[in-house]
């Protein structure tokens, strides 16, 4: 009897072990398949053009920084330095404006009771699902009539008005989880509603704020269609459009290693941010759960 029992325990243990091995195998296989192209790309950016198309190896035969140096110069009269500066001129205001405007809106929704609140909240949720494709053309015509084509204004303006429902919704969710007693105590102490937001709620909202900042940063860095439609002069191009131009321009011999090197440089800020602030990415996605 005793023997049998220990045997069955053994077999359960064995089964668990096998289970574990299967799971790890799947996880590792999926990770390798998914990330191999990206790692290979990093290696490829140091390879010669000939080696790229003959070797599946991650590692270049010899490390050559020439693709980076040549790629950075570009075939235009500007370097990638200019394109990066342009990108940041779009991204930084967007991050700041959307944070402030979304915070005010979320605060209004989460902490006040007023007429039509339910209707307004449903409108907010509706815009979350509204396909951008229907509003794009009239907005273009509007900015054209106002004379703002080929400026960064059309790309930034909507962030001044909290027009990214994802952030508003995420902040509302976070605000709702903060006990209202805090506000009430502060009111008794003589804080007005704005002071409650800045002095009491803001410090507790830090994780949500971090999530807003990093998501807006990454999405704005990724934005391609916005600048594609609105920015027409090369000197104002952000990195996304400059990269696209590099694959269009390369008639004749395509310097793939240079294009790849610049592609890597262009996603580097987002990757660094991702690995240093991962926690906030995960929290942001799961708390309100959108975008992909």
């Amino acid at each position: 009897m005793e023997l049998r029992k220990s045997k069955s325990i053994e077999s359960v243990k064995m089964k668990r072990k096998i289970n574990k091995i299967i799971r790890y195998t799947v996880l590792i296989a999926v990770a390798v398949i998914m990330l191999y192209p990206m790692f290979w790309l990093i290696g490829a950016s140091f390879k010669s053009n000939a080696e790229i198309f003959t070797s599946v190896s991650l590692f270049p035969k010899k490390i050559d920084f020439a693709p980076y140096i040549e790629g950075w110069k570009t075939k235009t009269e500007y370097t990638f330095g200019t394109y990066f500066m342009n990108t940041f001129q779009i991204v930084i205001p967007k991050v700041i404006f959307s944070l402030i405007s979304s915070l005010l809106t979320a605060y209004g929704f989460a902490r006040f009771d007023f007429k039509f609140k339910k209707i307004l909240f449903s409108l907010l949720m509706a815009t979350l699902f509204l396909p951008q494709v229907v509003t794009r053309i009239p907005l273009y015509i509007l900015w054209r009539q106002l004379g703002f084509l080929d400026t960064y204004i059309p790309l930034i303006a909507n962030t001044l008005f909290a027009q990214e429902p994802f952030f508003v919704y995420m902040l509302i969710q976070f605000l709702r989880s903060i006990p209202i007693d805090l506000d009430e105590a502060a009111t008794i102490d003589g804080c007005n509603s704005f002071q409650i937001l800045t002095k009491i709620l803001l410090p507790t909202l830090k994780p949500a704020i971090m999530s807003c900042i990093i998501f807006q940063f990454v999405w704005s860095m990724n934005d391609f269609m916005g600048p594609l439609i609105y920015i027409s002069s090369v000197e104002k191009y952000p990195v996304a459009i400059a990269l696209k131009m590099s694959i269009d321009n390369s008639s004749g011999i395509v310097q793939w290693n240079q294009i790849i090197a610049m592609s890597i440089i262009s996603i580097l800020p987002s990757i660094i941010l991702y690995f240093s602030a991962q926690k906030y990415f995960v929290e942001g996605t799961t708390s309100s759960g959108i975008k992909g």
Binding site: S101, L104, T105, Y107, F109, P138, F161, A162, Q163
Partner: peptide
Amino acid sequence: MKGRKGYLYLLPWLMGLVLFTIYPFISSL
């Protein structure tokens, strides 16, 4: 909290909603 102050905080968003969503939505139709 009660009160109309809520509208004040929603004002930028409401203006944006009209300008960047409702107006272009109708306009494109």
